[in-house]
C-alpha cells in the first residue's frame, strides 16, 4: 500500500472559531492505482491533497507513505519525500515565467544535486515523455495552456516519483487540451505511476479506476462511477 490515511482530521482556527475541514478521512491507495477525488468547492479537496503531498500536517490521524510514517518526519526529511517520492501538478501550472521549458523541468534535479550535464539529459528525457522535446527552449509565454501543463507534468515526473498528485490539472484548459492531459495520465499510469487526481468534472474523473466523493470534509467511494468504468472497459 503506497498511501494509507487513517482517521485524518483537519481543523482550521479562524477568529478563535474551530472550523473542521476534514472529518475522519480514511483513504488507502495501492501502488499503480489511478484515483480521482471529486467534490464541490470548499469541501476540503485541496486540504486533503496538501496533506497527501506532505505540505501540510493533519490535526490528528495517521498517514503512511510507502510504509513511512510521514507525520513523524522533520521539515528537511519532508522536503526529501516531496523531492523524490511525489510529483505535484497544479491547476495554474506554476511554471517559472523567465525560465525555458527545459530549465523549468530541471529545477527539481538541481535540488537533488544532479550535475548540470545529467540535469539537461534527464530533463530532455522527461520532456520527450510528455511529447514536448522540440519545445525544450520555449519560454512559458510561448506555450499553450495544454503545453504548459505538460511541461509541469514533465517537471513533476523528472525525479521518477512513485506518486503523481494533481489538483484540478484540467481546470484551466479547454476540453481538447484536457483530453490530451488525460491521455498522458493514462500513459503514465500504464507505466506504473500511482495517480491521485482532484477534479470537479465527472467526465475527467471517469478516467480514473476509482472515484471518491468528498462532501463537507467526509469522504466516500462513488460506487456508480466504478460500475460505469467497468462497463467502459
Amino acid at each position: 500500500m503506497i498511501l494509507d490515511l487513517q482517521h485524518i482530521f483537519k481543523d482550521y482556527n479562524q477568529d478563535k472559531l474551530l472550523v473542521p475541514v476534514l472529518k475522519d478521512v480514511n483513504l488507502q491507495v495501492e501502488e499503480g492505482e489511478y484515483v480521482a477525488i471529486m467534490g464541490p468547492s470548499g469541501s476540503g479537496k485541496t486540504t486533503l491533497m496538501n496533506i497527501i503531498g506532505c505540505l501540510d500536517r493533519p490535526t490528528s490521524g495517521e498517514f503512511k507513505l510507502a510504509g513511512t510514517d510521514i507525520l513523524a518526519l522533520k521539515d528537511k526529511e519532508l522536503s526529501n519525500v516531496r523531492l523524490n517520492s511525489i510529483g505535484f501538478v497544479f491547476q495554474s501550472f506554476h511554471l517559472m515565467p523567465r525560465e525555458s521549458a527545459l530549465e523549468n523541468v530541471s529545477l527539481p534535479l538541481s535540488y537533488a544535486g544532479v550535475k548540470k550535464k545529467e540535469r539537461k539529459e534527464r530533463a530532455l528525457k522527461a520532456l520527450t515523455r510528455v511529447g514536448l522535446e522540440e519545445r525544450a527552449t520555449f519560454m512559458p509565454t510561448q506555450l499553450s495552456g495544454g503545453q504548459k501543463q505538460r511541461v509541469a507534468i514533465a517537471r513533476a515526473m523528472v525525479n521518477n516519483p512513485k506518486i503523481l498528485l494533481a489538483d484540478e490539472p484540467t481546470g484551466a484548459l479547454d476540453s481538447k487540451s484536457g483530453a490530451q492531459i488525460m491521455e498522458l495520465f493514462q500513459k503514465l499510469n500504464d507505466e506504473g505511476v500511482t495517480i491521485v487526481m482532484i477534479t470537479h468534472d465527472s467526465k475527467i474523473a471517469s478516467h480514473a479506476k476509482r472515484v471518491y466523493n468528498i462532501i463537507d470534509g467526509e469522504i466516500s467511494q462513488a460506487d456508480e462511477k466504478e460500475e460505469k468504468n467497468e462497463e467502459k472497459d
Binding site: 503531498g53 517559472m96 529545477l107
Partner: peptide, 16 residues
C-alpha cells in the same frame, strides 16, 4: 511568494 511555494512543493529545502 508563489514561486517560493512552488519550489518548496517540488522539493526545495529551506537552505535552497
Amino acid at each position: 511568494t508563489q514561486e517560493i511555494g512552488l519550489k518548496k512543493a517540488i522539493g526545495a529545502k529551506k537552505s535552497n
